[in-house]
């Protein structure tokens, strides 16, 4: 019983976001255009509500932009032309996936740089550790040698222990 109600709740939670997605009734002449429309509207950011993409937002401006993107796609414009259209009007800001340029080089290169720094630190630590290890094992060998008794001593020990 408990499992069943849990299941129902789970299903309701998965369905809930569907109710929020903006619904448009755009009819595309080809399935390819429909596909590109959904990719574009998901990758472009709504200028008004900045944490949503154009596909998800219900704001009037997102609605207008969906209409414009639909119009351009049906006119046979390429994805790049659609993106260019929006960047010309709203700036690079509308791209959730920023273009690689001198302005965004830190953005794109940053993670690689940090990865390299991380790897350098990691290797630094590892090599240091292995050096310490070898020092320790040398020391261990030394003390083992010290602990070993000579034949003479062993006989003395035997005598003492009876």
């Amino acid at each position: 019983m408990k499992l069943r109600s849990l299941l129902i709740i789970l299903v309701l939670f998965t369905l809930a976001p569907l109710g929020y997605a903006a619904i448009d009734t755009y009819e595309f002449s080809t399935p390819d255009r429909q596909q590109r429309f959904s990719v574009l509207t998901n990758e472009l950011r709504c200028p008004k509500c900045q944490n949503q993409n154009i596909a998800d937002s219900n704001s009037p401006i997102a609605n207008d932009l969906r209409r414009e993107i639909y119009r351009m796609l049906e006119e046979g414009k390429s994805d790049d032309q659609v993106i260019e259209f929006l960047v010309d009007r709203y700036g690079e800001f509308v791209l959730y996936k920023p273009r690689f340029s001198s302005k965004t080089i830190v953005l794109w290169g940053g993670p690689v740089l940090f990865l390299l720094i991380g790897l350098m630190v990691l290797f630094g630590l590892l090599s240091k550790n292995s050096r310490v290890d070898s020092v320790v094992s040398e020391k261990g060998a030394d003390s083992q040698r010290k602990n070993q008794l000579s034949e003479d001593e062993r006989q003395r020990l035997k005598k003492l222990l009876g």
């Binding site: 200028p47 401006i61 207008d64 009007r89 709203y90």
Partner: peptide, 13 residues
């Protein structure tokens, strides 16, 4: 009326 000029101007509110 349909906000077309608004889009060309980059109006968002």
């Amino acid at each position: 009326a349909d906000g077309r000029l608004g889009i060309d101007l980059g109006v968002y509110g």
